[in-house]
Design a protein around this nucleic acid. Structure first.
Length: 891
RNA sequence: GCGGGCGUGGUGGAAUUGGUAGACACGCAAGACUUAAAAUCUUGUUCCUGUAUAGGAGUGCCGGUUCGAUUCCGGCCGCCCGCACCA
């Protein structure tokens, strides 16, 4: 089978001819769309009014990185948000729908290296280049609040927030093992490591010890977790992912004391070793203690014992990818040390070092209970350690049979002294109480979530407003001295390493103006790392909201009152790839801003409603030599595909996300030029459910384009009529049309409300088809047409304005209220009931809605087709569900 | 391995308290208009029973609950996504 998208498109097909028709009877998007855009712009109709009395609605799409081009993914993303924004406007809400640029980041540096330019010039050039196509798509955006995160005014306020967070104890510095991306030459946060690889570069991430700035996101671990339950307009999937990421577990942190008294490792003396466990009920089954190779005690031991150092090195060699670590064989080293068992004075346990124990979780040490933990089991098998079952499965089972794997299920405790006979849960709480009584530990809650490392060794980001003094340590820059400006001159990105660190003046200042410690005044050095760009996108929505529409504040991040009025964002739309990155960081930031008194947002939740949309995909084309070919360069010739210039035979491959590297991209600009913005918008919303991927096909676009023409012909052939008409006195065919229109409108509205735009689209098609068949030019037609045009408006705003104005509608369609559905039109007085015999449909009956069960049963049984299928059978039962169905049970 | 989601015509997909499976669209086929094509319009289009105003099968597979299951329950199979030695 050949790709329909190509076959359908004749080789001499000229897309420009569609929109540029000079035939007046045809809809000419190329002429119509800019004309309306000019009207909207002149009227400044999308500016949100902060002081409006109307109920507010904040619609937002994840703002773009200015890569230089708008792609179809953007079109789909913003089209969805635009549908919601326009719909809510028509529903009578005061709508805020802003747009800006997430403009710091690595691609600008890479582009600068590649082209010899400057990241700033590249970035702002791209923003200029992207604005025009964005405007051509006709989104209802309030551009008055636009900004870029790389604007000095923005990052200055971000530095101020950083300092406020510092004051509040939400920022700290420490040396830690960090994820190092060797390609981007920078540190990554845990959330930015995907499958052991950098989220942007794809390079295998290494572990390095480095001095880093951290945001204390763990301070809000519990609140971030609990808040998820309140986000009932978020996808379940995203909430689950965040909950898993936070990874709460409750258990016991306790100390195993050394068998032979206190010990000193390095400079510290320990009475024992701290472990964390979620299964204190299995303490009697403990057969060893295991340390992480990175545990401070082990590090100290390694300095004196070369065998331990060798073992640490062996563990480090396994690999740095998460998967390699997860699937590596269990490795252990017996330190010879022993600890006391807390419940059994006569028992001591050996202390091992084990490669599967993570330093980053719990205390970096565990007690091993091989019978009831698979990892401990594998380890015990390998090193011949005792395996003592202490949980008896409820259903039979003999504890003396040798286990083949760990048993982790419910059961009754055995071999466990005072815990014998208890269930798992009762055992856990008993064991915790006992340990607390013995003063060896206490019940604790642990989280998998780690603090957010935000230092990046890159140039194109927000400078961290800190001065490092040899005497006083790191000091915050005085607020009056903000912003710490990112230098434009003398930036060399071509050598690896931190560009700001080797800048001639940034770090230490100039002779006349040296960098000095804000505390003691001595010569000092500026912090040369920049903030993770995810910080930039963690509060931009608040600046949009608190920007007052007439300019962005220069003395504060946002106006507290106004921002707090608009927030939370009522509907946020973006890609699911940010499920635990941006969406978690933003939830942290709003809590920090709240607790610093900058934002009045008690819940701390920035986004009340979230929708994660699917991607735009396209088939990949390859030529004979295996090179990728742009879809626009492929033509159909006979029954084969050819490259338009080289005439090489092209084959169609898999359908995947549009990407530059595979060349399976369609340029929105070309589509706008060829078919119009409305068609592009309509197509990306029409075919697939919004959360799923949509495959871009030429035939699909042509279908959307045909539909736009169909609507126009319907309107242009019609006489002038008031699109706000209500034909309340309609009868006969007119009444039927009216019913149809109101029923369709109800479904269209429900579709928009529940983000099932494809079903709204289907209903719009049906209403259009019904109108096409309706020939009279009466008030029922006027009403139905008016409904149709307003239903289309959120999807195809230009076409709807043109239709509205052509019919003689008052004002702009954008300002027209959403059609009011007449409930009487949704109720049929006649219904058609299917008649089933033994669950199989045999006939149907049309009757007044109010027909009695008895009457319906009587008619059904006397139906000819029913009689035929009942031949030879006895009726046992007749089920009549009023308004639904009749089922006759016979045997 | 753990967690979550999804399997419906040639294709995208409808069917949200269990009630006519396949709406709507794409594609395809036939026809009208046309010198011809494009565009447009009309009709048909789940599969099988050579004909259909008739019958049978049918929502990944097997079973269950029910008058009735795409929908609820149990067990398989396949695909996708997320997490991944988290104690």
């Amino acid at each position: 089978m050949w790709d329909v998208s190509v076959i359908d498109c004749p080789s001499n097909f000229d897309v420009k001819s569609h929109a540029m028709s000079d035939d007046n009877s045809r809809y000419n998007a190329a002429e119509v769309e800019p004309r309306w855009q000019a009207v909207w712009e002149k009227g400044d109709i999308y500016r949100a009014d902060d002081s409006s009395d109307k109920p507010k609605f904040y619609a937002l799409e994840m703002f773009p990185y200015p890569s230089g081009r708008i792609h179809m993914g953007h079109v789909r993303n913003y089209a969805m948000g635009d549908v919601v924004a326009r719909y809510k406007k028509a529903q009578g809400f005061e709508v805020l729908h802003p747009m800006g640029w997430d403009s710091f980041g690595m691609p600008a540096e890479n582009a600068a290296i590649a082209t010899g330019g400057h990241p700033k010039d590249w970035t702002y050039g791209n923003i200029d280049a992207m604005k025009a196509p964005m405007r051509r798509l006709g989104f209802a955006l309030d551009w008055s609040r636009e900004f870029a995160t790389s604007d000095e005014a923005y990052y200055k306020q971000q530095q101020a927030i950083f300092l406020k967070f510092w004051d509040k104890g939400l920022v700290y510095r420490k040396t830690a093992k960090v994820n190092w991306d060797p390609v981007d030459n920078t540190v990554l946060a845990n959330e930015q490591v995907i499958d052991g690889k950098g989220w942007r570069s794809g390079a295998v991430v290494e572990q390095r010890d480095m001095d880093q700035w951290f945001f204390k996101i763990t301070h809000y671990a519990e609140e971030l977790l609990e808040g998820l339950d309140t986000l009932d307009r978020w996808p379940e999937k995203v909430r689950t992912m965040q909950a898993n990421w936070i990874g709460k577990s409750e258990g016991l942190q306790m100390r195993f004391e050394w068998a032979d008294g206190d010990k000193t490792f390095g400079e510290d003396t320990y009475t024992g070793t701290e472990v964390f466990t979620t299964r204190p009920d299995t303490l009697y089954g403990a057969s060893f203690i295991a340390f992480s190779p990175d545990h401070p005690i082990i590090k100290a031991l390694a300095e004196e014992n070369s065998k331990i150092e060798d073992f640490r090195i062996a563990c480090a060699k396994i690999g740095t990818t998460e998967e390699a670590i997860a699937t590596a064989d269990k490795l252990g080293f017996d330190t010879g040390l022993r600890v006391k068992h807390p419940f059994d004075e006569n028992k001591t346990l050996p202390v091992w070092i084990a490669n599967f124990v993570l330093m980053g979780y719990g205390t970096g040490a565990i007690f091993g209970c091989p019978a009831h933990d698979q990892r401990d089991f594998d380890f015990a098998k390998k090193y011949d350690l005792p395996i003592l079952p202490v949980v008896q499965p409820h259903e039979g089972g003999d504890e003396r049979v040798e286990l083949e794997e760990a048993y982790t299920g419910e059961g009754t405790l055995i071999n466990s002294g005072f815990l014998n006979g208890l269930s798992k849960d009762a055992g856990i709480s008993s064991a915790i109480s006992k340990i607390e009584e013995m003063d060896l530990g206490k019940g604790v809650t642990n989280y998998r979530l780690r603090d957010w490392g935000v230092s990046r060794q890159r140039y194109w980001g927000c400078p961290i407003p800190v001065i490092k003094c040899a005497a006083c340590g790191p000091q915050p820059v005085d607020e009056a001295d903000l912003p710490v400006q990112l230098p434009y001159e003398d930036i060399d990105l071509t050598i690896p390493g931190n560009p700001l660190d080797r800048h001639p003046t940034f770090k230490t200042g100039t002779k006349d103006n040296p960098v000095t410690c804000p505390k003691c005044g001595a010569a000092a050095e500026r912090e040369t790392d920049t903030l993770d760009t995810f910080a930039d996108s963690s509060w931009y929505f608040a600046r949009f909201a608190g920007g007052q529409g007439n300019g962005l504040p220069s003395d504060k991040p946002f106006d507290k009152e106004i921002a707090s009025d608009w927030l939370p964002v009522d509907q946020y739309v973006g890609g699911v790839e940010h499920a635990v990155l941006h969406l978690l960081y933003a939830r942290f930031f709003t809590r920090g801003l709240r607790d610093c008194g900058l934002l009045d947002l008690p819940s701390g939740e920035p986004f009340a409603g979230l929708f994660t949309q699917g991607m735009v995909t396209h088939a990949v084309f390859t030529d004979e030599d295996g090179g990728f070919v742009m879809p626009a360069d492929v033509i159909e010739d006979g029954n084969q595909l050819l490259h338009i210039e080289s005439r090489k035979i092209v084959s169609k491959g898999e359908v995947i996300k549009m990407s530059k590297s595979k060349k399976n991209v369609v340029d929105p600009d070309e589509i706008i030029e060829g078919y119009g913005a409305d068609v592009a918008r309509w197509f990306v919303l029409s075919d697939s459910p919004p959360e799923r991927d949509v495959e871009w096909t030429e035939s699909g676009v042509i279908g959307a384009w045909r539909f736009s023409k169909k609507v126009w012909s319907l309107v242009s052939e019609s006489e002038k009529m008031d699109p706000m008409s209500v034909a309340s006195d309609a009868s006969g065919d007119a009444l039927e049309l009216r019913r149809f229109a109101h029923k369709a409108m109800e479904k269209i509205t429900a579709g928009i409300e529940s983000f099932r735009f494809n079903t709204s689209v289907a209903q719009i098609y049906e209403l259009t088809n019904a109108l096409k068949k309706y020939k009279a030019n009466d008030s029922a037609k006027a009403e139905a047409l008016g409904i149709l045009i307003r239903a289309i408006a959120p999807f195809m705003p230009h076409l709807s304005e043109e239709c509205w104005s052509h019919l003689g509608g008052q004002g702009l369609c954008y300002h027209a209220p959403w059609p009011v559905i007449d409930p009487a039109m949704l109720v049929e007085d006649e219904v058609t009931l299917p008649i089933q015999v033994n669950g199989k449909r045999r006939s149907e009956l049309t009757a007044p809605k109010a027909i009695s069960k008895e009457e319906a049963e009587k008619i059904a049984l006397s139906d000819e087709a029913v009689q035929r299928s009942l031949d030879g059978l006895t009726v046992r039962k007749v089920i009549v569900v009023p308004g639904r169905i009749i089922n006759i049970v016979a045997s």
